[in-house]
Amino acid sequence: MTSKIEKEDLSRRNFVFGSIAAAGLTVAPGVMLYQTANARDLSKPVSSKVRWGMLIDTTKDVDWNKCVEACVKEHGLGNEEHSRADQRTQYIRVVDVKNKTTGYSMSLPVMCQHCEKPPCVDVCPTGASMKREDGIVLVDRHRCIGCRYCMMACPYKARSFVHETLTDQKTTTPRGKGCVESCNMCVNRVDNGQLPACVEVSEGAIVFGDLNDPESDISRLLAKHGGKQIRADLKLNPGVQYQGI
């Protein structure tokens, strides 16, 4: 059964990727060559040898709102016409934290933390909420029934529900009324060998990379300075870690 599905998937992927490649080679060979240099081979399944993660340095003087803007642009968010402010989708938000006793305050961007043991995946009745082998947690929009149990379960409030019919969505981020969505670590960009949109504009404050590769920048930084997880007590082992919190 599995192998049959895989075969079908493979042939479909081959076809899609082949068509894209053919079109790309005809129209813009330069772009195509650049992108395939770091891109994942889409004809092969995602490998668990890689675990994508982010390390966010909150001590750096960065305007985190730039990350929010980049995310909104990348995924075509903010196109709700009827939804109230508390109903609009946010993949990433800036959280201001203040210590009541000492007065110390800081800001940090919070998005899906791409947990190793994601509660949203556990509770999803249909398996729409899923974790890829490479650690990216995302929602299969064709399988989500909109029960919102994952939103109840997520300790980071990382998910949003689409409250109205949307138009003009990005082809790379399909979004639809009645489904739940969240940061997908810009899976479309990562598969293409590019950085997630928020990382790209973060002026180096967010480092993206493979947590399983001890030679990667993120692993070296974590080895040297350590990283902190939000709600580490829950032992979900998020792929997004912080410095300075």
Binding site: V97, K100, P155
Partner: peptide, 16 residues
Amino acid sequence: PMVMFPGMEVSSSFYD
């Protein structure tokens, strides 16, 4: 409100 940072005062555009 969900407690993400115990003992801290928290605010955001997402009603934290």
